[in-house]
Simulated scan of single mutants.
Amino acid sequence: MHHDTPLITTIVGGLVFAFALGALALRLRLPPLVGYLTAGILVGPFTPGFQADTVLAPELAELGVILLMFGVGQHFSIKDLLAVKAIAVPGALAQIAFATLLGMGLSHFLGWSPGEGLVFGLALSVASTVVLLRSLEENGWLESEDGKIAVGWLVVEDLVMVITLVLLPAFAGMLNGGQIALSWSQLGWTLAITMAKVAAFVALMLLVGRRFIPWMLEQIVHTGNRELFRLGVLATALGVAYGATQLFQISFALGAFFAGMVMAESPFSHRAAEESLPLREAFAVLFFVSVGMLLDPEVLLKDTAVLLATVFIIVIGKSAMAYGIVRLFRRSHHTSLRIAASLSQIGEFSFILAGLGISLGLLSARGQALILAGAIVSILLNPMMFALAERYAARSTAKA
């Protein structure tokens, strides 16, 4: 008897196509990432043949984001986060502002409204969690000082986007989105509530989670049951991420990151990271497949010039600003190039912001398509940006 199994179909189709095209990309001496994105395009709704579920795929990809950020949090202590705040906070804020202004400038040239330009620019300003962390891991930089600066920068960007997603509906009326405009006191109250929720979550994790989660892991280890330990790790990562979203309106990624940070207090944190690695890798692949599914190839042909300008803002504009900021803090040329390469792409928060912009009437279908296509192209170019950063850094070192 035939059963309708969209979940199984999406997982099997996504992984099989990703494996085949990832292997082909590796054979052609290209990053497997290229194969994963191509697999997404092939199983997406814009190409004929096999089609994965466009609703389930992003949700499965979100699991990859959660597990990846959880693993990163296990290698990143509160002390590490505070150590880079002096550069990460002003750096991320300045880079977001610069990229947003560039996006608004392009939108003004295209004749878009200020509201659409703001959403478009913000979507181009925030880097992808999955792409950045995966690149740092592949290059062995995740636990280096450069990697810690990049991760701290990413955390600040994510926090800014969390606040943006909360405030954008409130400002929609002022931005001609067809919504009722709120007063300044109401807007201030909304911002205060959002910041209070973030602070409450962080306090809860540091005061309660920091004691409970390591204690829980220790109790599970004493049972000697490896299966229960693995289940406890996954339940902690997914449970905290989900709870952070439902109770505090924090993103899944940030919730999982803080869960990993407090688990790092346990002597079994390295074992926990190893146990979650297989699922983390599998769902990270599904993330790239889901990104590929969003791309309508016709955008590459219909709006080529504007797409190139969008990619220029993401890959060159953001990178140049990040490089300049890091240099202003008297970091080395090598470190500045690495941070710039890390941030030269966009991803999941950009998609969420574009979707919200569409629902509020602030963003057109053309703007959303350019954001999606810009994300795909920038992700494909990201390995090349890392290679160029290393090449120029090595050349500068040789000359010195």
Rank of each mutant, 00 (worst) to 15 (best):
D4H: 15
T10R: 11
G13P: 12
A18S: 14
A20M: 10
P31E: 08
I41C: 10
L42I: 05
V43H: 04
V43T: 04
T47H: 03
G49F: 03
G49E: 01
L63M: 14
G64M: 13
H75P: 01
K79P: 01
K79M: 02
A83M: 11
V84H: 11
K85G: 00
A88P: 08
P90Q: 04
G91A: 03
F98S: 12
L101Y: 10
L118A: 13
L122W: 05
L122T: 07
L124W: 06
S125A: 15
L142H: 02
V151G: 05
L159C: 03
V160P: 00
V162Y: 04
L175K: 07
Q179Y: 04
L182E: 12
S183H: 10
K197R: 15
F201R: 12
G209T: 09
P214C: 12
N225P: 03
L228N: 02
A235L: 13
A244S: 15
Q246S: 13
Q246E: 15
F248D: 01
G255I: 07
F257M: 10
R271A: 09
A272C: 12
L277S: 07
P278A: 05
A282R: 10
V299D: 06
L307P: 09
L308N: 07
F312S: 15
I313A: 14
G324C: 12
L328K: 02
S332F: 00
H333Q: 13
T335Y: 00
L337A: 15
A340S: 14
A341L: 04
S342E: 01
Q345G: 05
G347C: 07
S350V: 10
G361F: 04
A365P: 03
R366L: 05
I379C: 12
A387S: 11
S396H: 14
S396V: 05
A398P: 03
